[in-house]
Simulated assay, not measured.
Amino acid sequence: GGAVVAAPVVLGAVGFTSAGIAAGSYAAGMMSTAAVANGGGVAAGSAVAVLQSAGMAGLSGAATAAVGSLGGAAAGLLAVIF
């Protein structure tokens, strides 16, 4: 549950905001790297494009389920380790 709640906060903190990618942020660096790798553009469906979409519009039902599942798996792994 915490992963689902934290996802929008984390996206904003790294620069994927509702107003677009924040200048000078980690997200801006990711976008620059993706653009250089793709000849000047960011490919649709790439990690940068998906994260920006989630940062602008929020998470879809499927994305919320995926984040919740990954968060639960990570918490379970940490519980086993510690």
Rank of each mutant, 00 (worst) to 15 (best):
G1W: 05
G1P: 03
G1H: 08
A3L: 03
V5E: 15
V5L: 11
V5A: 15
A6G: 11
V9R: 11
V9M: 12
V9G: 12
V10P: 00
V10S: 02
V10L: 06
V10F: 00
V10E: 01
L11C: 01
G12T: 10
A13P: 00
V14T: 14
V14F: 04
V14G: 09
G15W: 03
G15M: 02
G15N: 06
F16W: 08
T17W: 02
S18T: 14
A19I: 11
A19C: 05
G20H: 13
I21A: 07
A22V: 07
A23S: 08
A23D: 13
S25N: 05
S25K: 02
S25C: 03
S25F: 01
A27M: 08
A27C: 08
A28W: 04
A28D: 10
G29V: 05
M30D: 03
M31C: 08
M31L: 14
M31G: 01
S32Q: 13
S32N: 15
T33G: 12
T33C: 06
A34L: 03
V36D: 00
V36Q: 01
A37M: 01
N38E: 09
G40T: 03
G41D: 10
G41E: 09
V42L: 10
V42M: 04
V42D: 02
A43R: 07
A43M: 04
A44D: 11
A44I: 06
G45W: 00
G45R: 04
G45C: 04
G45T: 02
S46D: 00
S46I: 01
A47Y: 13
V48P: 01
V48F: 08
A49G: 02
V50N: 01
V50Q: 05
V50K: 07
L51W: 05
Q52V: 10
S53F: 01
S53T: 06
S53K: 01
A54M: 12
A54F: 06
A54V: 09
G55M: 02
A57S: 15
A57G: 15
A57P: 06
G58Q: 14
G58D: 13
G58T: 10
G58S: 13
S60T: 15
A63T: 09
A63G: 15
T64D: 07
T64F: 00
A65G: 08
A65Y: 07
A66Y: 13
A66N: 13
V67D: 06
V67E: 12
G68N: 07
S69E: 14
S69H: 13
L70C: 12
L70Y: 14
L70R: 09
G71K: 09
G71C: 11
G72R: 04
A73K: 12
A73P: 00
A73R: 05
A73S: 10
A74F: 07
A75K: 12
A75P: 00
A75V: 09
L77W: 11
L77V: 14
L77E: 12
L77R: 02
L77M: 14
L78A: 15
L78Y: 13
A79H: 07
A79N: 10
A79W: 08
V80E: 02
V80W: 12
V80L: 09
F82Y: 15
